[in-house]
């Protein structure tokens, strides 16, 4: 499978989706000008992955900040992961003391039927 490796910028997150190395991670800040276009490769990658999923996948979110348009894209990613059934575990990392990110993680955990863990760093 194709590997996605996008470097982070001031307004877009770093994304690694590497099937061979078993690394699936979105980190940094996310407030792109056009969220749908930015996250489109991720959605397409997840669709391909769903045709040949591994026995287990650990998907990590390590976001510092995201805007409301990104919050919708993140929910779309989580819903795509939910489709993979129990083969996926989500780690939602948030900085110690960042209530907004902690709350967001809790809200997403309520919205999707996935194994999801909140990790403080």
């Amino acid at each position: 499978m194709e590997t996605i490796n996008i470097e982070g910028t001031e307004d877009t997150p770093k994304i690694i989706l590497d099937y061979n190395a078993d690394v699936y991670e979105i980190s940094g800040k996310s407030f792109p000008e056009d969220c749908a276009t930015f996250y489109e490769p991720v959605m397409n990658w997840l669709e391909s992955y769903s045709n040949n999923p591994k026995d287990k996948m650990i998907f990590k979110f390590k976001l510092d900040y995201f805007n409301t348009a990104s919050s919708k894209s993140i929910l779309d990613i989580l819903l795509a992961l939910e489709e993979l059934d129990k083969k996926v575990h989500i780690e939602w990392h948030y900085r110690d003391g960042d209530e907004d990110l902690e709350d967001a993680g809790e809200e997403y955990a309520d919205m999707v039927e996935c194994s999801m863990e909140l990790v403080k760093f």
């Binding site: 000008e33 056009d34 969220c35 749908a36 276009t37 409301t68 348009a69 919050s71 919708k72």
Partner: peptide, 9 residues
């Protein structure tokens, strides 16, 4: 997400 890229949120 709208064409303009907003989620209305």
């Amino acid at each position: 997400l709208s064409e303009k890229g907003g989620a209305g949120l």
